[in-house]
Design a protein around this nucleic acid. Sequence first.
DNA 1: ATAATAGTGTCTGTCAGACACTATCGA
DNA 2: TCGATAGTGTCTGACAGACACTATTAT
Lengths: 221, 221
Amino acid sequence: MTQVICTVDMVLLTLHEERLKVALLKRDREPFKGVAALPGGFVHTNEDHDVRDAAMRVLKEKTGIDAPYLEQLATFSGAARDPRGWSLSIAHYALVSYEVIDRAGHPDVKLVSVDRSLSLPFDHRLILETAVSRLRSKSQYSSLPCYLAGETFTLPQLQKVYEILMGEPLNKVSFRRKITEMDMLEAIDGEFESAGAHRPAQLYRLKPHFKKQLQLLERGL
Amino acid sequence: MTQVICTVDMVLLTLHEERLKVALLKRDREPFKGVAALPGGFVHTNEDHDVRDAAMRVLKEKTGIDAPYLEQLATFSGAARDPRGWSLSIAHYALVSYEVIDRAGHPDVKLVSVDRSLSLPFDHRLILETAVSRLRSKSQYSSLPCYLAGETFTLPQLQKVYEILMGEPLNKVSFRRKITEMDMLEAIDGEFESAGAHRPAQLYRLKPHFKKQLQLLERGL
DNA sequence: ATAATAGTGTCTGTCAGACACTATCGA
DNA sequence: TCGATAGTGTCTGACAGACACTATTAT
């Protein structure tokens, strides 16, 4: 039994210009030095408590970002995926609003639309597709998309987020019924968002209880 | 960076005596020698193509079983979970009918109801609970439970399987409507199951197309 | 015949989506 | 006043579950 190379890879997703985008970073070492790839790194057994810790550390080191939502995706493995040898990557995905990426302002982070056919090193293409598929699937019946909307948002903004993820327009009345049913938002008293020559929209935020806990629907949207 | 111990653990689930049960094996070496635990083993980079291969190999070696359904569950990791050091286990779960376990006839395999509060070594309790939770969740809206029902089964038998997993009685008419909607079963012509002094039930099997591919419902059962 | 379960036709309450309406802003 | 979007009341068609019925076996 030979050594297994243990790494974590991060799929950092956000919404920008009405598109779902992934954060890519030019690799600073071999293999694939200089090629845009998912941020990743080795598991450090001396400093990481577990692989979730490793994923958060790698994300922070490479992009400067602490993500409000981060979840293990799956483990990708095999003899062929890394030229250095038999390797294994515990892939995670994280969701942030565009503002968080913008504020971090890391010069090497590039946002690329996930719908464009991307050529990525290792099996990062498969990892990315798995992450996007997981996100879209969970968006059908959970509060997950809220983490892409930022700290505060209006209901029309949140509906737009869901629509981009689901790839289809949603019924306004039904959408609001479901959001009410989930009972995860609180109106920010007296705060409205004026976005032009029309009635301003009420601002909402996630109830504190749901900051780290997804809310699920019995039946999807 | 010190060495990471890479293992796979298998959660082998089946139905027996109207209960969901997990297969446990007495450990044949330290740590926890002699204690009942999930079947597990090291990843062998020289013979396993990837961790799925490793999981299938471990299951076959320890229980003699080739499972019709096997899926990666999640990776459990950390410095504390294994006394030998910082370790990582890519947990998988597999579904089989009781007949498969019975036919394999492995003397050391014990079936234990998952609802009993079990004391297990390592973090196997957490792994088991995660697997059961995943299975129950997927049972709501997919054909997954079919793999617990065996090669052929009647609709009343399949409904019973779903009911055990969901923990509640299901409406017969609705259940059959959903099964028809999934369009994954084919009647075995002229084959019926006589189970007493009443009308025999039609035998069904999964359509070949769905042998390795789950069928999903738009809305759950 | 009777008991027991398999399998099906039909009715009804519930709920998602369509539509229409009011509310509130800037110009 | 008008155009635009926010937000809400209501109607209707579709569908899940309840009920009732027929079908088919062993005793």
